[in-house]
């Protein structure tokens, strides 16, 4: 597969994987730690959405599905399927040490390992494409514009019925 097309497709797949898993495990619903709370309220003050702000604060403050997706791509590059599962285990340890139950990060890493196995075996992707794609996907959430990305994440959270209940 052409490398540029592969990176773009991998970025889309990674974005969908981590946003869906994180939203399903209710990252936008409440901040796990005080830092996430501060980030969410700061983004709201700058014209963003509170649910999306909590989402961004949570993926900043503890390893959730975003970190799981990136780490399992790296583990898959180095060690194959074993590396992806090992990444899920390490993300779980990191989650527990960050005052987080650890469902989102672990599930994100394991689903990404399955996706990586299917994509590399049948569709001609390589694990490097997913590492670059995941960095691009994180950049679209955290790097370009916090108010716009938080509004997008907030509307996705509302569709999943996971909007923030705090005010």
């Amino acid at each position: 597969m052409n490398e540029i097309i592969g990176v773009i497709l991998a970025a889309i797949i990674s974005w969908l994987n981590f946003v869906i898993v994180d939203t399903y495990f209710s990252l936008p619903e409440e901040p796990g730690v005080k830092g996430a709370d501060l980030v969410g309220r700061s983004i709201k003050d700058r014209g963003g959405d509170l649910s999306g702000g909590f989402f961004q604060g949570n993926i900043l403050c503890s390893p959730d599905a975003s970190a799981g997706t990136l780490l399992s791509s790296i583990g898959f590059l180095v060690l194959g399927i074993n590396g992806g599962i090992l990444a899920g285990f390490l993300v779980y340890i990191g989650n527990r040490l960050c005052a987080d139950p650890g469902y989102a990060g672990t599930c994100g890493a394991l689903t990404m390992t399955v996706i990586l196995y299917i994509c590399t075996k049948f569709f001609g992707f390589t694990a490097e494409m997913f590492i670059v794609g995941m960095v691009i996907a994180i950049f679209t959430i955290q790097g370009i514009s916090h108010p716009y990305s938080s509004k997008l994440l907030g509307s996705i959270a509302a569709k999943f019925n996971r909007s923030a209940k705090l005010e």
Partner: peptide
């Protein structure tokens, strides 16, 4: 379940078993 801290047979026991085996 997504806010629960209870240790159970599905989570995290299987994750730890798979992680040790993968190691």
């Amino acid at each position: 379940r997504r806010f629960s801290w209870t240790k159970s047979a599905i989570f995290p026991t299987t994750i730890i078993a798979m992680g040790l085996l993968a190691f």
